[in-house]
Amino acid sequence: MKSQNKEILYGLYDDDEDLLKAVKAANKDHLEMYDVYTPFPVHGLDPLMGFSESRLHIAGFVFGAMGTLTAFLFMTWVFTRDWPIIFGGKPYWSVPAFIPITFELTVLFSGIGMVVSYYIVNGLGFGVENPTLDDRITDDKFCIAFQTNGYSDAEIENLSSFFSKTGASEVSSKVI
C-alpha cells in the first residue's frame, strides 16, 4: 500500500460507540468507506463493515496438516526404509512413539504458516511503512476514512455533513 496519491477525507470520533453509530449511518446513506481505523478491535464493527469471516483458520489447517504428514511420513521412512533399528524389542514402525513429535510439528507448521500468512495478507512486515492518517488513531481516536479522488464539491460537502451529523470531533483531508 505505497502511496498512490489517494485523496482521503477522514473524521475522528472520540468513542467506539460513536464510531459504530457513524458506520451504521454511513451504511444507511450508502456511503462507500475507504477504511475504518481504531486503536483496538471494536466488537460489532466487522458485520457493519460487511467483512466476511477471516480465512486464516483454513491456512492454519492446511499448514498443520503439512506438519502432521511431514513428521509422520519422515519418521516412518527413516525407521522402516532408510535405517531400520530395533529399539527395546519394539517394531520398526512404532506409531505411538511417533505421536509426540507429530503433534509438535503439526503445531509448529500451523503456527508459523498462519503468522506468515497473516503478515503477508495484511501487507505488514519489519520495516514496512504504511501511511497513517493521524498519530492519535493508535491512542484514543476512532477514524472513518473516505477516498475522494474525482469527487465533486457536492459529494465532498455531503461527506462533511455526514461527519458533523454523526458527531465526529475532527474532520481533515490528506493525500496518501
Binding site: V36, T38, P41, S54, L56, Y119, L124
Partner: peptide, 27 residues
C-alpha cells in the same frame, strides 16, 4: 511493521489470536 489499525487487520488479528490460542493450549 507498518501497523495502521485498519478494521480488516484487527479482524484478522483477533482471528489469528484465537486460533493461535487454540493451538497453544494443547501445546
Amino acid at each position: 511493521m507498518g501497523w495502521t489499525g485498519s478494521a480488516k487487520h484487527w479482524q484478522r488479528f483477533e482471528s489469528l489470536s484465537l486460533i493461535l490460542a487454540g493451538l497453544a493450549t494443547p501445546l
